[in-house]
Amino acid sequence: MDRRLFLKFLATGILVGCAPGEFTSSPIKTNVLRPPGAIPEDFFASRCIRCGRCAESCPYRSIKILDIKHGFYAGTPVIYAEKIPCYLCMRCVKVCPTGTLQKVSQKEVRMGLARVNRRLCVTWNGTGICRSCYNACPFKEQAIKLDRLRPIVVPEACVGCGLCTYSCPVKPKAIVIEPIYAFKASK
């Protein structure tokens, strides 16, 4: 291989590596969450050693491990709230060896915040009466309250476990989890 070809390869490699895309940008988005007690996303990928013990200890198989397609985030744990939500058994925070998942109690978990889409929700748009999310919520009357049977999320108490999203019968989901705490810059 001559030098020019090598430099070309190197330059392409660097460009591909630095280009914003699935390879370098965080996989965390609506309904794709970090496990309970996770530190902010800015530090998550650098502190996590990808040992996967959170996924192994999860009794509900909520925690999935990302593969090499996610680039730098390969091997880090995520929860797909629509598929299997977090049931807040808090086993993963006990086994994390690096403190990437900090030891928090159930009520202190902030995986995200539930958001009700009032146009899609059958109770809000008046096409029916449903309170699946209210029934599923582990913190009834604290995180989700009913206002004339219409669900209202209380941001102070919502832990973002995704049980409401999982139970929502409407498609697309009328209640989703936004991981707003993952991108709060604080250490």
């Binding site: 650098s46 502190r47 996590c48 050693i49 990808r50 040992c51 996967g52 013990r53 192994e56 200890s57 086994v95 060896p97 690096t98």
Partner: peptide
């Protein structure tokens, strides 16, 4: 639990030095 990146035997945790140091 775990494997040779982080092995947990009861309450004893063994972390691989490379991964731990890099983190």
């Amino acid at each position: 639990q775990g494997w040779y990146q982080s092995l947990g035997i009861g309450r004893l945790w063994i972390v691989s030095p490379l991964e731990g140091l890099e983190s």
